[in-house]
């Protein structure tokens, strides 16, 4: 066990955990931020996507010891009032079915738009490839990303 100082959603936290503990479980079990989801644990499904310094990362495969001073953003911290353009677009297109994958989808999409404000269909397919939606909401996700891109 060791102490780690983390910056999560603009707030400082200190956690005492094993250095190999993935950020996912630090968020869920230690900080009670359960919006970030567990789906596979091996960086294959994207349910656990967060931002590290604004870049999408699979938190299930990022050990806490590797984060250093990077700013962690989770779905809870994406916007103060659910008014991030991606969140708004998700509501407008009524994207979720079961909803379980959507936090990860939204985090991947918002990181994409930050890096590439006007993504093509191919850009979207590439950036979102790591996010599985078992309910099959892919068509709506793509439409919502385009709406969010236009609203920026």
């Amino acid at each position: 066990m060791a102490n780690f100082d983390l910056l999560v959603n603009k707030q400082k936290h200190q956690v005492d955990v094993d250095p190999d503990t993935p950020i996912l479980w630090v968020l869920r079990d230690h900080l009670n931020l359960v919006g970030t989801k567990y789906g596979c644990g091996i960086a294959q499904c994207g349910a656990c996507t967060i931002h590290l310094d604004g870049v999408a990362a699979r938190s299930c495969s990022v050990p806490v010891s590797s984060v250093g001073g990077k700013a962690i953003t989770t779905i809870e911290g994406l916007s103060a009032k659910a008014d991030h353009p991606v969140q708004k677009a998700w509501i407008e297109h009524d994207v979720p079915q079961c909803g379980y994958c959507q936090a990860g989808q939204i985090m991947s999409a918002s990181a994409l738009l930050k890096a590439n404000p006007n993504p093509s269909d191919e850009d979207i397919d590439v950036a979102m490839h790591g996010n599985i939606c078992r309910c099959g909401t892919y068509v709506r996700i793509k439409a919502a990303i385009k709406t969010a891109a236009m609203s920026k």
Partner: peptide, 13 residues
């Protein structure tokens, strides 16, 4: 619209 939409997009438990 899905009544739980706002909760889902903000990651509520």
């Amino acid at each position: 619209k899905n009544v739980d939409g706002p909760k889902i997009v903000t990651g509520q438990p």
